[in-house]
């Protein structure tokens, strides 16, 4: 992802992405910043690869993967929402392809996408709320533990187990720790193309 684009996106959403590795730019967003950022990335002609969720101690982590038709690399949006109130604005008004992805997240986790046109079960049986991918508290891991690059803004001292107040304001910066170091060894030739802009 080009650095100028990263800057534009940083201007659109409050939290910053400082580093781009192998063309993959990662943005940790707050829910209210999601739609402006997605609008921006649509203007930058990115297409939606997928929307997925994961269950962490701090809440549900929603990951939006975008990629570009011409540019190599990805743009990753991460949004953390709380377990108690799993709500997030739907991006389906901008990316209609997200309709199904969001329905799927609703199937698996029970995340509610506000303003979704038709949030009914997609893959699972409509009669029951199974939420098969929700994890119980023992098996939940800490989001910060796995993604040390992202950090919670509020309640800095005790992120573990604290999921009551501050999750909505989750913001962070930086990319995940190692995008593609292994790749770089195996496929040296491609790196220049992939990361020319963002190595500042």
């Amino acid at each position: 992802m080009k650095q100028s684009w990263v800057d534009e996106l940083n201007a659109a959403g409050a939290p910053k992405c400082t580093e781009v590795q192998k063309g993959v730019a990662c943005f940790c967003l707050e829910p209210e910043n999601l739609l402006p950022s997605v609008r921006k990335i649509l203007d930058l002609e990115y297409y939606l690869q997928d929307v997925s969720a994961a269950d962490f101690q701090e809440g549900y982590l929603l990951t939006y993967h975008f990629a570009h038709f011409e540019e190599p690399g990805q743009a990753v949006f991460r949004v953390l929402i709380s377990h108690e109130e799993p709500q997030i604005p739907s991006i389906s008004s901008l990316y209609q392809g997200a309709i199904w992805h969001e329905q799927e997240c609703n199937d698996f986790y029970g995340i509610v996408f506000t303003d979704h046109p038709d949030l009914k079960p997609l893959l699972l049986v409509p009669e029951e709320n199974l939420y098969p991918l929700r994890k119980d508290t023992q098996s939940q891991k800490s989001f910060l533990d796995i993604f040390p690059g992202c950090k919670l803004v509020e309640a800095p001292p005790a992120p573990e187990g604290e999921e009551s107040s501050g999750d909505q304001e989750t913001a962070g910066e930086e990319t995940p720790k190692k995008k593609g170091t292994g790749k770089a060894k195996a496929r040296k030739g491609d790196d220049e193309t992939a990361q020319e802009p963002g190595q500042a």
Partner: peptide, 23 residues
């Protein structure tokens, strides 16, 4: 773009997007 179409379906729309070439 809005639906995230890729592969031959996208190349049928005139976009030369192929991961084998792009990344």
């Amino acid at each position: 773009r809005r639906y995230g179409v890729t592969g031959p379906n996208l190349r049928g729309s005139g976009v030369e997007h192929d991961l084998r070439r792009n990344t």
